[in-house]
Amino acid sequence: MMFKKSLWVFHLNSGSCNGCDIEVLNIFTPKQDVERLGIKLVGSPRHADAIAFTGPITRECLPKAIEAFMAVPEPKIVLAIGSCACGGGIWFDSYAVIGGIKEFYKILKEKHGIEPPTTIYIPGCPPKPEAIIYGVALARKAVEQKQKSEIFVEESDIDDAATLFKEATSTRHFIPKIEVIKRGE
């Protein structure tokens, strides 16, 4: 485990709609109260162990997000919170956004030669506060990961439509009766 003690989190909004940000704030209020688990929001990236990324990373935010990302000391964990951060969300291919954390890592690699750090993807739009807590617990390996990729391949011998249905290459079965309808009748 990378971090044995309290996890300090820097929250980086990279163009999110506020939904995820409010849910991040929400986990510090009485109902969820994650400070009981030693998790704390900090104001400066230099104090943080983890970055909570929200938003699809807009073009305007990109250079600023890179700067904030590099200011977090190693080793670090990235929590990609919400569908925008995980995969670009509903705007994933729009002209004004980069399209999620994976594209962000690509740019980091190309421009600055930085390898992607440990990343926890927390999908949801926005994720429930409990889903964020679960993601943090997963980062600390306190819970087992439930979500696994599933691939189903259909096994079947039939692959041509001709055996499925009687072939329809000849026209004689289908000739319809044409009735002439006169206008005004």
């Binding site: 305007e60 705007w91 729009s94």
Partner: peptide
């Protein structure tokens, strides 16, 4: 401002 411009008007017309 406009750090959060996400191009939604064009997206609505386009996709």
């Amino acid at each position: 401002g406009f750090h959060i411009h996400r191009g939604m008007e064009k997206l609505a017309e386009g996709r």
